[in-house]
C-alpha cells in the first residue's frame, strides 16, 4: 500500500538494488554455474572440468558439450544412491529422536513459573551462539571407546567391554539431536506458551483426565510447532557434513560428506555439482511444505 508513500527515489533504488545485485552475483550466478558444470564433462586440467569460463565465447561450446553423463553416473553407482537414502533415513530418525527429547523439554518450559521463562529461554538459545564444531567435538571425548561414557559405565559395572559408539550411526544420531535440539524446542515452546491455559481448565471441567486432555487438546494445538521444529531439524540434517564426518567415521555415508569427498579427494567437479543439484531437488519437497506451514502460521496470526 505505502509503496507510493516511500516514493520511487534514490533510497528505494539503493534498498532494493544493493542486496539484489549482491545476491544475483554471489548466489544466483554461482548456482547457475553449478548447474552448468553438472552437465559438463570432466577433464584433468585445472579447473578440472571442461569447458572453462575463461573466455565468454567458450560458453556456447559448453552448451554444445551438454551431457547428462554425470547424472547417469550417479544413478548407476550405488555409492551415491546409498548416500542419499542413508541421509534421508538418518535425518528422519534423528528428527523423531529430537522430537522425543525436545517436546518434553518445551512442555516443561511452557509450564514453568512465568518469571523463570526468560532464563530458560536464554538457556535454550545460548548453545546457538556456541560454535557448532565445538559442540560436536565435545561428544568425541565422551563417546569414544576409552571415553568418559564408557569409563562411567565401567565404573557403574553396567558393561565389561567398551561400547563402540563413535563411527556408527548412533553417534550421528546423538550429534544431530544434540546440535539441533534448540531448533525443535523453540517453535514448540512458542506454540505451547501462547496456548490458553483455560482450555485445559475447560477440558477438566467437562470431565477429561489430564492425560486425555493432553492428547486431545494440548498436542493437536501444538502440532504446528512440532511440524515447524521437525522441518527445521530435518532439512539441514539431510545435507549435514560436520557431524557424519567427525562422529560417523568412514563407513557411514551421508550425502554432504560424499559430496565433500567427491570434490576435495576425487576432484571430480562435474559429478559433485550433479550430486549437489540432486540433493537440492530432494530438499525442495520438504522446503516447500515447510514454507506452506510458515505461511499458514503467518496468516493465522
Amino acid at each position: 500500500m505505502a509503496a507510493s508513500g516511500m516514493g520511487k527515489g534514490v533510497f528505494r533504488r539503493v534498498a532494493i538494488g544493493l542486496p539484489y545485485l549482491w545476491l544475483l552475483a554471489l548466489f544466483l550466478i554461482p548456482f547457475l554455474i553449478v548447474l552448468k558444470i553438472s552437465v559438463s564433462t570432466i577433464a584433468t586440467a585445472i579447473p578440472p572440468y571442461t569447458p572453462t569460463f575463461g573466455d565468454i565465447s567458450t560458453w556456447l561450446d559448453g552448451i554444445r558439450q551438454f551431457t547428462f553423463e554425470n547424472y547417469l553416473w550417479i544413478a548407476s553407482d550405488s555409492l551415491y544412491i546409498t548416500s542419499y537414502l542413508e541421509s534421508l533415513k538418518i535425518a528422519a530418525i534423528s528428527t523423531v529422536l529430537t522430537l522425543a527429547i525436545g517436546y518434553p523439554l518445551a512442555y516443561g518450559m511452557a509450564r514453568a513459573p512465568q518469571r523463570m521463562k526468560p532464563l530458560l529461554l536464554m538457556l535454550v538459545i545460548l548453545p546457538f551462539w556456541t560454535s557448532f564444531l565445538i559442540r560436536v567435538y565435545a561428544w568425541i571425548g565422551i563417546l569414544k571407546p576409552e571415553g568418559l561414557l564408557n569409563q562411567f559405565l565401567f565404573f557403574l559395572g553396567v558393561i565389561d567391554a567398551p561400547l563402540i559408539i563413535t563411527n556408527t550411526p548412533v553417534a550421528i544420531y546423538i550429534g544431530i539431536v544434540y546440535s539441533y535440539l534448540p531448533f525443535m524446542v523453540l517453535p514448540i515452546f512458542a506454540n505451547l506458551d501462547k496456548m490458553d491455559g483455560r482450555l485445559l481448565e475447560a477440558a477438566a471441567d467437562l470431565g477429561s483426565t489430564p492425560l486425555r486432555a493432553f492428547w486431545t487438546i494440548t498436542f493437536p494445538l501444538s502440532l504446528r510447532g512440532v511440524l515447524a521444529g521437525a522441518f527445521l531439524v530435518f532439512i539441514p540434517a539431510v545435507g549435514e557434513f560436520v557431524i557424519p564426518d567427525l562422529l560417523g567415521g568412514s563407513r557411514t555415508l551421508m550425502i554432504g560428506k560424499t559430496l565433500w569427498m567427491e570434490f576435495f579427494n576425487n576432484r571430480d567437479w562435474p559429478v559433485s555439482s550433479a550430486v549437489a543439484i540432486i540433493l537440492l531437488l530432494i530438499l525442495v519437497v520438504p522446503i516447500v511444505i515447510f514454507q506452506r506451514i510458515q505461511d499458514r502460521q503467518e496468516a493465522s496470526r
Partner: peptide, 20 residues
C-alpha cells in the same frame, strides 16, 4: 534469493561460491 540460503546445505553454498 533471500530465503534460499537459509535452507541451502552449506556444502552446496560453498561449492557454488568456489566454482564462481
Amino acid at each position: 534469493m533471500v530465503y534460499a540460503p537459509l535452507v541451502m546445505p552449506e556444502v552446496i553454498t560453498g561449492l557454488s561460491l568456489l566454482l564462481l
